[in-house]
Simulated assay, not measured.
Amino acid sequence: MTWWSFVERIVVPTVMLCLLAGSLAGIVFGFALALRSGPTLQFIARMNRWVSTEAALRPLEVPRQFDPAPDSPYRRLLGGLFVGGGALTIYFLLTRLQIARLVDAKRALGLAIVLDATMAIFIVGGAFALLVGALMLFWPQRLTSLEERLNRWYSSRRLVAAQERMLTPLEPHVEAHPRAAGWIIAIASLAIALAMAWLLVTRVVH
């Protein structure tokens, strides 16, 4: 299966279904806003609440330092197990396991994609275990320096700082003209729903 066939058979229908579901929800919301403006605006007011992530992430923002564990006498044994397990995993998955023989990609494309992705994840994990085991056996100092470089604390506050503001540019206009806004949303959503439904039907027929 080529990349273009994957996009055409998986990505495009998924996007169409998402747009269809969103347009159906927009139709319901638009008609509710146009026909029953009061209860709909009250529902929007109850749902339109801002929840700050700072309080939720505060326990995770505390840096915790752990002293490095002493050199274990079983380090070489553990490194050998890592090397052997990683090598066997890579060998078995690349030479003994054939996804094409287990699943017909034409009949069960989704299952074939999931199995291929799972196999790729296990291969990468086996390669990483092989690398860590080799470092434990032959270059323990490099493994220690690698752990020190990777063991860094990154604060999420800088990443979400720009999102810690409540933005409501649409609600004042909707509240001022709820019926007109409702009809506009309903008609636009109906047009999108009809277009997506027509595209999906034509894809199924052809």
Rank of each mutant, 00 (worst) to 15 (best):
A87W: 11
A69S: 15
P68S: 09
A100P: 03
W139V: 02
R101P: 00
G84F: 15
F138E: 04
R46L: 11
A45I: 05
S52D: 15
R58H: 10
G125F: 11
V51L: 08
P63K: 13
G86L: 06
G110A: 10
L115A: 11
D71T: 13
G84M: 08
I123S: 03
L109Y: 14
R96E: 14
K106C: 02
A117K: 05
A120L: 12
G110N: 07
W139Y: 10
S52V: 05
G79Q: 12
R49A: 03
G86N: 05
A117M: 07
R101G: 04
F92W: 13
G110R: 09
V103Q: 07
R49K: 15
R36L: 07
A56I: 10
P63L: 07
A120Q: 12
S52I: 06
L77S: 02
V114F: 12
A87M: 11
A129F: 05
F43G: 02
L111H: 06
D71A: 07
P73V: 13
D116V: 00
T95G: 00
E54C: 02
L88R: 05
R58S: 15
D104L: 04
R75L: 10
L35F: 11
L137V: 13
V51G: 01
L135R: 11
R96N: 14
A69E: 14
A127F: 14
D116S: 07
A129T: 09
G38A: 09
F92M: 02
W139N: 00
M119G: 04
G126H: 03
L94G: 01
L94N: 09
G86H: 00
L88H: 02
D104Q: 02
Y91D: 02
L77T: 09
A108Q: 14
L94T: 15
L130D: 06
V132Q: 09
L93C: 03
E61Q: 13
L137M: 12
K106S: 10
G85Y: 12
G79H: 11
R64M: 12
A105C: 02
D104P: 01
S52K: 06
L57I: 12
R64W: 09
A134S: 14
A117D: 05
L137Y: 07
F82P: 01
P140K: 12
P70G: 11
P140V: 14
F92Q: 04
F122P: 00
A45T: 12
I123N: 02
W139G: 00
R75K: 12
G110M: 06
P63D: 11
W50Y: 15
R107N: 02
N48F: 03
F43S: 07
